[in-house]
């Protein structure tokens, strides 16, 4: 089971308290009606699906209820860090084991 740190509650808690909410830092287009079909596809459907450090959203559903962001290595499933919504992305410092 994953142990996840909620940056709002400042507590590290079991995965069952949280729900995964997909890739992070995908901004809804400001003016959707001006988008081309390709841009709309990219926003709705295309995902980085990174093998390695992945920026993603989680929600502390059975706790404070808030969304936050995380950087997690999808090869080891280890969380590198979690941070509050709106904070800039942390850099990819850590070298995790590739496979």
């Amino acid at each position: 089971m994953l142990l996840i740190h909620c940056p709002y509650c400042n507590a590290t808690l079991p995965e069952v308290e949280f729900t995964y909410a997909g890739e992070a830092h995908i901004a809804r287009p400001a003016d959707p009606s001006t988008l081309s079909d390709e841009e709309w596809r990219d926003y709705l459907f295309i995902r980085s699906n990174v093998k390695g450090p992945h920026y993603e959203r989680w929600r502390h559903q059975h706790g404070c209820g808030r969304f936050f962001n995380a950087l997690r290595d999808t090869v080891s499933d280890r969380f590198i860090t979690t941070y509050k919504t709106g904070a800039p992305r942390p850099p990819l410092l850590t070298q995790e084991t590739p496979s």
Binding site: H54, T74, D77
Partner: peptide
């Protein structure tokens, strides 16, 4: 499992 991963294992929950 709920999260994306390449780890070829999932969680016990």
């Amino acid at each position: 499992d709920q999260y994306t991963s390449y780890s070829q294992r999932g969680g016990l929950p």
